[in-house]
Design a protein around this nucleic acid. Sequence first.
DNA 1: CCTTGATCATTT
DNA 2: AAATGATCAAGG
Length: 230
Amino acid sequence: MQPASCPPANSTELLTRAQQLAGFTLGELAEMANISIPANFQRHKGWSGQLIELWLGAQAGSKPQQDFPELGIELKTIPIDDFGKPLETTYVCYAHLTGIAGIQWQQSNVFNKLSRVLWLPIQGSRDIAPAQRQVGSAFIWQPSTRQNQQLQQDWEEIMDKIAMGEIEHLTARHGEVMQLRPKAANGQVLTTAVGADGQQIKTRPRGFYLKKNFTAAILKQAFALPPQSP
DNA sequence: CCTTGATCATTT
DNA sequence: AAATGATCAAGG
C-alpha cells in the first residue's frame, strides 16, 4: 500500500481511496509514505491534512480552489474526540476584505469550497500521540437546503459588515454556523480593509471557519444508523 | 503578502 | 470546558 501517484479519476475512486485509509494510524500512513512523524503538532499544524492529500493524490498546493477541481470536491480532515465530535473549528477559506461589493453568495469562495466536501475524521485528542491517531471513515457531503441557508445567512451578515467598514467590530461571536477569525502567520501581518468612513485601513487578515455545532451535525448525519427494517 | 494545510494557547 | 483570538509551516 502506497500513496496515490495521480489524482482520482472520479468521485467514486476518490471516496474508495479515502475509505481504504480507515483504521490506519497517521504513523502507519506516514511510514508507508516515507515521511517523518512529528511528536506533536505545535509546529506542524497542517501535517495531517497534507499527509492525507498525499495519500489521495490531491495536487498539493496553496491554490485558492478545491483540492480536486476536476471533481468539484474539497478535502477536509477533521479532528474528533472519542465520541466522534469535532475538537476544532474547520477552516474554509481566506476572506477578502476589499473589492467585495456586489458579490453574491453563489459566486463566493465559501459557497464554492463547501459545495461538495470529502470529510475524513481523524482521532484528535491531545492525549493520543500523532503517530497513534487513527483515521476514520471518509464520506462525501453536500450541504442540505437548510445548511446552505444557514451558511448563506452568516456569510451575508459577515460580508455586509466587512463592506460597511465594520471589520474591527466583527468578532468570532458573529455567525450561527460560520465565523470570521484571524488567519495569519502572526499578529504583525496586516492587510487592507475598509474603514468606518470608507477609507482604507490596515487590519489582521481573516478567514472563514465552520463552527463545531455545524460540523458536529454533519458528522452525526453521516454516521447515523439507517432505519432498521422490521 | 496571499492562501493553503490546520492546531495552539489564552481568555471566558 | 468551550470558545475566541493567535499562531506555525510551506508554496506561490
